[in-house]
Computed example of a mutant assay.
Amino acid sequence: MPIMSARPALVLAYFTYFGVLGIFVPYFGLFLDGRGLNSADIGLLLAIVTASRIVGPSVWALIAERSGKPLTVMRLGALLAAIGWLSSFADYGFWPLLVGFTLFSFFWTAILPQLEVTTFAFVNDNTRAYGRIRTAGSVGYIVLVMLGGWLFQHFGSEFLPLSALLFLLLLLASLFLLPTVSVNAELTSATVRFSQLLKNAVLVRFMLAALLLQMSFAPFYGFFTLYSRDLGYSGSQTGLFISLAVAAEIVAFYFAGSLMRNRSYRLLLGLCYGLTVLRWYLMASFADNVWLLCFSMVLHAGSFAIAHSCAMQFIQQFFPKKLRSRGQALYAGVIFGGGGAIGAYCSGLLWQDGVGASQTFYAAAILALLATLLALTLPGGKPAAPVTS
């Protein structure tokens, strides 16, 4: 059976993809700080690098759609991303780092949307099966976060270039283990134009809520390791905090399919986004209390894992099969690219080398609250895209 043969390869691909992010996301701020950048420079670099994800997913999705070879697109993206990553080994200041990481980020965007579409095709849109395969990504993330904390404590921030490159190469190897699949061969012709779907009010509200939520995550993704260090926690402790969040994420992904069955997007997203408000408030006010900090990390189960599973299911149900690759690319570009870039830039300005840390997380809580209010305006049932004959 194709699904049985593909499953281990998909598990490995998710494991290595998010393993790279487990090194890159939590420790990138520390790495840039070690290279002498201040918080404003770090925020600007993160914003520009993240902004490359706005255009990248749509470019690669269009190539995958027209060629009918998403696997080739993923392999090419992984190869070029590894080449772009080589710039991290050189220390020539802000601008060379900016160019190298922007190239890395642009090519990196070729991978995940196509991997998501391919996985849903293999599991025949079964959310439970998708969630359990996607759990491998969370396991990869948590393993590398814990390893990264130990490496940072013993070798400093310069551990990042080589360790991330090794997992980039493992990712590339894993993509060559995936069986060839032409997603377009399974798809029916679309009944509506992509531009027509973009005008749908439900999609607009859903995307705006997700955008605000992603903006609220920027201080956590960009500055939490610096925040933790400034509060006196060790590198290993920081790794354990992040690992706790990802452990909660793993459990949530595993049960996401059952949890989402017969429940509305309005209810689930409203609840998940509301928990995110609480999470950032605790981060701003009580991060020096280890138990409350740990509790805020457990809330990652709702604020990321269940929310992400809802979003993926929304995209799969809203867009016709032939347009799902572009739907995934739109989501990745606008939310992770646009939301991440705006959030990173604003966080860098508010952070003020740690002086404005609490205020930055309070601002994140306000953004999450706005996202919650928008999510509560979504319809209770499945998203209905316009259909034409």
Results as ranks from 00 to 15, higher is better:
1 M>E: 14
2 P>T: 13
6 A>L: 10
17 Y>H: 11
26 P>H: 09
28 F>C: 04
30 L>R: 10
31 F>R: 07
34 G>H: 13
36 G>Q: 12
39 S>Y: 03
41 D>A: 15
43 G>A: 11
44 L>S: 14
44 L>R: 13
46 L>V: 09
48 I>M: 15
50 T>Q: 15
52 S>D: 03
54 I>D: 04
55 V>Q: 08
55 V>L: 13
63 I>N: 04
69 K>N: 12
71 L>M: 12
73 V>D: 02
74 M>I: 06
76 L>V: 11
77 G>P: 02
79 L>V: 08
80 L>R: 05
87 S>Y: 15
88 S>M: 15
93 G>T: 13
97 L>V: 07
97 L>M: 15
99 V>F: 15
102 T>F: 11
104 F>N: 06
105 S>M: 07
108 W>P: 00
108 W>D: 01
114 Q>H: 04
121 A>E: 03
123 V>K: 04
131 G>F: 07
132 R>N: 11
136 A>H: 04
141 Y>Q: 07
141 Y>N: 10
145 V>Q: 12
145 V>F: 04
146 M>I: 11
149 G>N: 12
151 L>N: 11
151 L>M: 14
152 F>G: 13
154 H>I: 10
157 S>Y: 12
159 F>M: 11
160 L>I: 10
161 P>Y: 12
163 S>Q: 10
168 L>P: 05
169 L>K: 08
169 L>I: 13
171 L>Q: 13
171 L>M: 15
175 L>K: 02
176 F>K: 09
177 L>E: 10
181 V>I: 15
184 N>M: 10
187 L>G: 04
197 L>T: 00
199 K>H: 08
199 K>S: 11
204 V>L: 12
205 R>W: 03
208 L>M: 13
212 L>I: 08
215 M>W: 05
216 S>H: 08
220 F>I: 01
221 Y>T: 00
229 R>C: 03
230 D>M: 03
230 D>T: 00
234 S>A: 09
236 S>A: 15
241 F>I: 11
244 L>R: 05
247 A>L: 14
249 E>D: 14
250 I>C: 14
251 V>D: 03
251 V>K: 01
254 Y>Q: 11
255 F>H: 10
256 A>P: 07
258 S>I: 07
258 S>C: 06
261 R>G: 08
262 N>G: 13
267 L>R: 12
267 L>D: 11
272 C>F: 03
276 T>G: 15
276 T>S: 15
277 V>H: 05
279 R>T: 06
281 Y>V: 14
287 A>Q: 05
287 A>M: 09
288 D>L: 01
288 D>T: 09
290 V>M: 10
291 W>K: 02
293 L>W: 04
296 S>K: 02
302 G>S: 12
302 G>C: 06
302 G>E: 05
303 S>Y: 05
306 I>P: 08
313 Q>L: 14
317 Q>M: 07
317 Q>E: 14
320 P>L: 04
321 K>L: 01
324 R>Q: 09
329 A>L: 00
333 G>D: 06
333 G>Y: 02
333 G>S: 06
336 F>W: 06
336 F>D: 00
337 G>D: 08
342 I>F: 12
345 Y>Q: 12
347 S>F: 06
351 W>D: 08
352 Q>Y: 01
361 F>C: 05
362 Y>Q: 09
367 L>K: 07
372 T>G: 07
376 L>W: 10
376 L>I: 11
378 L>N: 08
387 V>E: 13
